[in-house]
Nucleic acid binder design. Structure first.
Length: 574
RNA sequence: CGGAGCGUAGCUCAGCUUGGUAGAGCACCUGCUUUGGGAGCAGGACGUCGCAGGUUCAAAUCCUGUCGCUCCGACCA
């Protein structure tokens, strides 16, 4: 390809609406342009990268035995009503109406469609297992699209769905996808690792997310290198963080004491009371489908709402409003406690305070707290569960070593679904024993467009993008510094171009009549892995100049060696 | 949806406080010079100042409304 024939609108300055570096480079290097928030046009260069990632995804999906399909993006709402997600996913569903005012759904994902297909086509255990995948545009009415392709209203996803007759089979399918994902990200030049992920209302143990470490990521990963433990913070459990209570306080009776003006854990820890946060019980009032529940955490801990979802089996909860809380407990937030609360209110307590004593909590009377709370004695009806958010330095659940936290971008998610959708949509089969059973499903997603931007986020320097060879828009940027067709420089460039292309190398020739510095800057901004510059000065010394984008000095090589050397580098880096 | 900020040339932004001729740099067009790290000079084209009302002799500037964009939170590939 010749630069003057394609469209690579590079920008010297970062667009004002691009916050993170990968978003800026995506725009500046002329890969995409924004139509409106969360919607992007892929320009020729960006599309080449996208296609290359898709090719890798296809190859690895095919290799794992998955079957490529293509499902409609436009879907009837009836199947969403059947699965129950017409309601539960209503916030992300884009809806459209046709001329007769019938409603349609733009697919944010395809469990309903694929399961409907399987319900009709796979009827015997002999037809299983099967895994289907597709690479397709998804639509999600994101509350807040952001960071370019990272979170868009419309994006390209590789989604896959496995169907097995047994749970054990489903685990094999799961593992197969899990492994394929690792290969995909590796081939894309991405450092991504699998972490245990929250399974939310679906339950079950099998969910992993593939994470790319990045400060701009929207997720937090809790990990311990030595033990290998890694989990999304929503899911992360820890070893016991329970602290020893002072034996002297165990049998003391609870005692109310005045705490005027104290509204927060912090107030009580600092002020005149000097009660460490670790000795306080934090009392939160939530409403679960209009029924109040009380949550108890240690003063220094934060509630993990994803864990709460798992505990109560629903995501339909919200923090109570001040008026509701006053009505329930008779005091304002800041003086709340669970001691003596009616046994009709469900109370969940975090494991970190189970069995402790000498604790301080609100008295349910404004301006008063109570001390010497012995949890086992004074809070008998509490159900003890894991509710806290893991913190840096907490003990690793497997090794006890201190945990660390790293921000990351989620590029893939593998999920063992079970029979939720197969039951709802009738994907059953006749087993050996003549019984009708629901298929056991798994679902697997890769954000293809997000993966693209993640590579930029991970692989760049102050000059621009550094594309890994496998997904670079072009492998080689041929840079003649004189584009006069009659010049020796341009004739040699044309010769190299022809030879390299004939050997299957993807070359872009920068045939613009621009100054050298201008061309060098552009090629570095776009990030072609190899640049071969041909200029009069070096040619007079019998050499051309090879520069690797990833680093290293300019290498001077003879024109005779140029094509072979470039070819060798391309293959080394693939 | 809650909180914060921003809408002026293709891009980055100044001008707004204190109302009065619409600005700069980059990019674009023409010419000359230049030619190894985002060149220089001269000339040129490009704007309903997001939109709609209002105040005023007069609005980019003040007021009201509205739409869009960005960031923080809940959601997620």
């Amino acid at each position: 390809m010749r630069w003057t024939h394609t469209l690579i609108p590079t920008l010297k300055e970062a667009p004002s609406d691009a916050e993170i570096l990968s978003h800026q480079y995506l725009i500046r290097s002329g890969m995409v342009r924004k139509l409106t928030a969360g919607l992007y046009t892929f320009l020729p260069l960006g599309l080449r990268v996208l296609h290359k990632i898709e090719k890798i995804v296809r190859e690895e999906m095919d290799r794992s035995g998955a079957l490529e399909t293509l499902m409609p993006a436009l879907q009837p709402p009836e199947i969403w009503q059947k699965s129950g997600r017409y309601e539960t996913a209503r916030d992300v569903l884009f809806k459209a109406k046709d001329r007769s005012d019938k409603e349609w759904v733009l697919g944010p994902t395809h469990e309903e469609v694929i399961t409907t297909l399987v319900a009709g086509e796979l009827q015997s255990y002999r037809h299983f297992p099967k895994t289907f995948y597709q690479i397709q545009t998804k639509f999600r009415d994101e509350i807040r699209p952001r960071f370019g392709l990272m979170r868009a209203k419309e994006f390209i996803m590789k989604d896959a769905y496995s169907f097995d007759t047994t749970d054990e089979g489903a685990q094999v399918s799961y593992k197969s996808m899990y492994d394929a994902y690792a290969r995909i990200f590796k081939r894309c030049g991405l450092t991504a690792f699998a972490v245990e992920a929250d399974t939310g209302v679906m339950g079950g143990k099998f969910s992993h997310e593939y994470m790319v470490p990045a400060e701009t990521g929207e997720n937090e990963v809790v990990y311990q290198e030595e033990s290998g433990y890694a989990a999304n913070i929503e899911k992360a459990v820890t070893g016991s963080v329970k602290l020893d209570s002072d034996p002297a306080l165990k049998d003391l009776e609870i005692e109310k004491f005045p705490t005027p003006g104290v509204k927060t854990i912090e107030n009580l820890a600092r002020g005149s009371h000097k009660i460490p946060a670790t000795q306080q019980i934090k009392t939160l009032v939530y409403f679960l489908e209009d029924k109040p529940i009380i949550l108890l955490l240690r003063g220094d801990d934060q509630l993990n709402e994803a864990k709460l979802t798992g505990v109560v089996g629903s995501a339909e909860f919200r923090p109570g409003e001040e008026a509701e809380i006053v009505e329930l407990l008779g005091a304002h937030p800041g003086s709340l406690g669970a001691v003596g609360v009616s046994s009709e209110v469900k109370i969940y307590g975090d494991l970190a305070i189970e069995g402790t004593w000498g604790m301080v909590t609100g008295a349910n009377e404004d301006g008063f707290h109570i001390k010497n709370v012995n949890v086992s004695r004074d809070l008998p009806s509490v159900e003890w569960v894991d509710l806290r958010t893991a913190k840096v330095g907490d003990p690793c659940p497997t090794s006890g070593k201190p945990l660390k936290i790293q921000r990351a971008i989620e590029v893939g998610h593998v999920f063992k679904l079970g029979t939720k959708y197969s039951e709802a949509l009738g994907a059953t089969f006749l087993d050996h024993d003549g019984k009708t059973k629901p298929a056991v499903m798994g679902c697997y997603g890769i954000g293809v467009t997000r993966t693209l931007q993640s590579v930029i986020e991970q692989s760049n320097d102050k000059f621009g993008v550094i594309w890994p060879m496998a997904i670079a828009p072009y492998q080689v940027c041929l840079t003649p510094l004189n584009v006069d067709p009659a010049s020796e420089v341009m004739q040699l460039a044309n010769k190299f171009y022809t030879e390299l292309v004939s050997k299957g190398v993807e070359v872009i020739m920068d045939d613009r009549d621009e100054r050298p510095g201008f061309k060098f800057k552009d090629s570095e901004l776009v990030g072609f892995p190899i640049r071969l510059a041909i200029g009069e000065k070096s040619l007079a010394n019998g050499v051309v100049e090879l520069k690797m984008r990833a680093g290293g000095e300019v290498e001077k090589i003879t024109p005779e060696m140029a094509v072979a050397t470039v070819l060798e580098r391309v293959h080394e880096m693939l």
